[in-house]
């Protein structure tokens, strides 16, 4: 059996290399000046154009503004989801009430509705609301996401004993008090999963800001970078640097929370 261990590890490492190569290339190319990014044979090691690329990037798009927008929208989406999804998840997991199963089924079913069905009227609605080029359409409608409710319901069902809640009621805690004083502290591992998953989803969202934030100062990183990508005076070095800086927080977060992120993102597909 061990005679097969070496080739297996070799194959796995080789595939890992194929997966890692594009990431490596983003960071390598971010350090080569615009005119030198494309070379023959291609660069596989770092250059010395980082500073110039940074200046070029700032000259072409309001990069700090875009970063702030991406970060702000992702942070607000995450905070609201943590609150509202835990609240709803608590209700579905720990209360017996009329219509519970039907309503929970309904929440789950909404996840199967593809986004493109309501996108066009949603845009028209946002125009009427005057929400175009603001953070609102990317934060408010998804504040209590169905996926988050599903995740928190699953988590709370198994991790909070009913006796604890009864004891809290006898001690005179209100229903909302139980939520804030008992459920939230106990839900921390679930909140961590939901938090990173929501943040990553918002950070990478492209179609939403593409439609809803058309102004370059109002938009987020992916849309600003894609606009730069299709510009005639595109500076490839600057674009790569922008990409590297967009990827960096994700890669750092992933290194620390990979287990939680993977568990969260496959939660619907993998029974736990």
């Amino acid at each position: 059996m061990t005679k097969r261990a070496l080739p297996t590890h070799f194959v796995l490492a080789l595939i890992g290399l194929v997966f890692a190569l594009p990431f490596w290339m983003v960071f390598v190319l971010a350090s080569w000046r615009g005119g030198e990014v494309l070379a023959f044979p291609p660069h596989l090691w770092f250059g010395d154009g980082l500073r110039e690329n940074w200046e070029q990037l700032l000259e072409r798009i309001p990069f700090a503004r875009n970063y702030f927008n991406s970060f702000g929208i992702a942070t607000l989406s995450t905070l609201f989801n943590l609150f509202f999804c835990t609240m709803a998840g608590y209700a579905f997991a720990k209360y017996r009430f009329k219509g519970r199963d039907f309503l929970y089924g309904f929440v789950i079913a909404t996840m199967a509705v593809p986004g493109f069905l309501n996108l066009i009227p949603f845009y028209k609605m946002m125009v009427k609301f005057g929400w175009i080029n603001t953070w609102l359409p990317l934060v408010v409608p998804g504040m209590a996401g169905a996926f988050g409710i599903f995740l928190m319901t699953q988590f709370l069902t198994n991790s909070v004993p009913d006796e604890l809640l009864d004891a809290a009621r006898i001690d005179g805690l209100t229903e909302f008090g139980i939520l804030t004083r008992i459920i939230f502290p106990l839900a921390k591992p679930g909140l961590a999963v939901l938090g990173v998953v929501t943040f990553v989803g918002s950070w990478n969202n492209f179609t939403g800001p593409l439609i809803l934030l058309p102004k370059v100062e109002s938009t987020t990183l992916p849309v600003a970078l894609s606009a730069l990508n299709s510009r005639v005076d595109n500076n490839l070095g600057a674009l790569m640097l922008g990409n590297a800086l967009t990827l960096l927080p994700l890669i750092v977060a992933f290194v620390f929370f990979s287990k939680r992120i993977i568990a969260g993102l496959t939660a619907g597909a993998v029974k736990q």
Binding site: F19, P22, F23, F206, L221, N229, M240, S258, I261
Partner: peptide, 15 residues
């Protein structure tokens, strides 16, 4: 192997 899944499409396509 999972890392590409959480990478933004723009970065992926550009590279």
């Amino acid at each position: 192997y999972f890392l590409p899944y959480i990478t933004s499409t723009v970065s992926v396509v550009v590279i």
